[in-house]
Design a protein around this nucleic acid. Sequence first.
DNA 1: GTGAAAGCGCTAACAG
DNA 2: CTGTTAGCGCTTTCAC
Lengths: 348, 348
Amino acid sequence: MSSKVKKRTLINDIASHLEVSIATVSLVLNGKAKQSRISDAVAERVLKYVEEVGYKPNHLAKSLRTGKTHVIGLVVEDISNPFFATVAWLIEKQAFERGYRIIYCSTDNDPAKSKELISMFRERHVDGFIIVPSDGIEDEVQNILREQTPTVLFDRFLPGLATNYVVVDGAQGTYKAAQHLLEQGFRNIAFVTTNSVQTQMEARLAGYTKALEERGLAPKVKRVVASKNAEPLIAELHAFIQENRDSCDAIIFSTNYLSIYGLEAINRLQLQIPADIAVVSYDDHDLFRLYTPAITVIAQPIESIAKNVIDILLEQLQQPNDHAMVNDNRIVLPTALVVRKSSVKQQE
Amino acid sequence: MSSKVKKRTLINDIASHLEVSIATVSLVLNGKAKQSRISDAVAERVLKYVEEVGYKPNHLAKSLRTGKTHVIGLVVEDISNPFFATVAWLIEKQAFERGYRIIYCSTDNDPAKSKELISMFRERHVDGFIIVPSDGIEDEVQNILREQTPTVLFDRFLPGLATNYVVVDGAQGTYKAAQHLLEQGFRNIAFVTTNSVQTQMEARLAGYTKALEERGLAPKVKRVVASKNAEPLIAELHAFIQENRDSCDAIIFSTNYLSIYGLEAINRLQLQIPADIAVVSYDDHDLFRLYTPAITVIAQPIESIAKNVIDILLEQLQQPNDHAMVNDNRIVLPTALVVRKSSVKQQE
DNA sequence: GTGAAAGCGCTAACAG
DNA sequence: CTGTTAGCGCTTTCAC
């Protein structure tokens, strides 16, 4: 036989050393000493010895038995995007403190990958889901819900599905941004967005359109194909900006990565910001603070998003099993316009 | 009783439906049909039915039984740093294809947090470790090794500990960078680094020092306290650059985040790069490509690091249990100097 | 070739 | 108040 080197302490070892039953140990460890009327003396001895030998229950066995893993699956669009990375980090911190672990994965906004990840998380028996839904995963989310697994969506929601969600009022964000540019005297404001019809993107577009139409100005919208492939996107934006050089004095980008590609394109065209063209980005980024000139952004309330998401989820997680789940937490948070130099008209 | 809604298919269900024993099903599913001389006909029926009902074995039960979780613990310094994020992503992709899952956590280079995370991963029964070691965790790593858990360190190693590791030849990187600056005609090259004495930081410093001393020039080293708190660091660098304004015409930063803070400081001092001061950063970053001017960097071979790490780990993971582990894979990879405008002397 | 059965380590009735 | 015991779902030996 192989020489077993590992010698983890088991609940058995504890019980026999202390000459009590393993049930007693288990009960004490799970805080059920009182309700099982175990003497304080015994409880204390158990706790002390457990501490002494550094006994840790085997999570696998525990989960197999209880059906609870204390793990939450976090499905985001792209964990390398600072927005999602920060939200994920905040959620993880909060969850950790309350005894939950997070496992995350990125979908790259691909429905197939989203489905695969959700299914993987289900296999792993996560206790709850936090999802940034891509299009076309209504059925999967529906399934999770039917299984009574607590779930919260964020950043966007799935219209027609009764779920909890936490989103941001993107329309109000782009509306304020457009108004700000108008006040600064820019008149030909373009809006660069993706071809996505997801709720959050449509809202951002709507806010922009509304602001322009209120002033009787015609919106100019450029939609690009969402992709992580930088060069073609930069080229496309380069072409767009070049073509509209004379008919466009400001651009609002609907996501931080579009802005970054846009800045690269503007750079290559050797245009000056904001003299030749003003820029506002939806969503903040380190780069925008550091860029010369600093870029005006529509900032999302990251802390608040994370806090709301985890609060809703944990509340449902703590619900007793037979309690019917209600998924009617719909939170909409405001954005903040952070004005920097890229959108402020210079004195001539 | 609570109304059990969930109805996962179990191996039992498969067996009874097919009127074979659960052992047969298990054997077939684990590819041991042949060696258990199960008829092809039966094997096929099993596989077909399993496919049909979409049966997935319960990982928890499987792991509890086999002692293998097929999960790898990845402990990095800071997952929000693009270098670590990219390596992690590549590792995850590779591991996934070979049936392993990754769980990651950041240590922020804090020994206490590192220890906690390693212990958490052990509790979770990870099959292997990939660690970016902070100082002072020699004992924990020693423990993992003693338990025969496959482990690979990267980015740096723990001197005096016989472990597998994958690192980069940082000394050669900074040496080449310094030489490049000297060739460009810069003579007063400073080196900004942290107060860390970890192997990778010491190597980077050594390469710089060597290049200068070979030319009979005196090194000028600024050490700052490593921290994620931006403002004090920026202020410290601001002060340093200001003080040495006349005695320093180039700076090499030893990490990407130091460079970012440095750029912010240079910005605030309204110095021109490279006219007033040339800049080279160790480690690349999106920001450095996009910055005006683009920043010269010492680039690390990210793909190669990830590939080596995962290859070494998976090889050990596939080793039969009774096979004594040897931890003598020591890989040192070269860096590449990517020259951009920030370090090229302009025509006067 | 196949099936029965013994656990992996833990929890939680239930019976004393 | 404490101990016995029956599983959670799966793998794997060993007897048929």
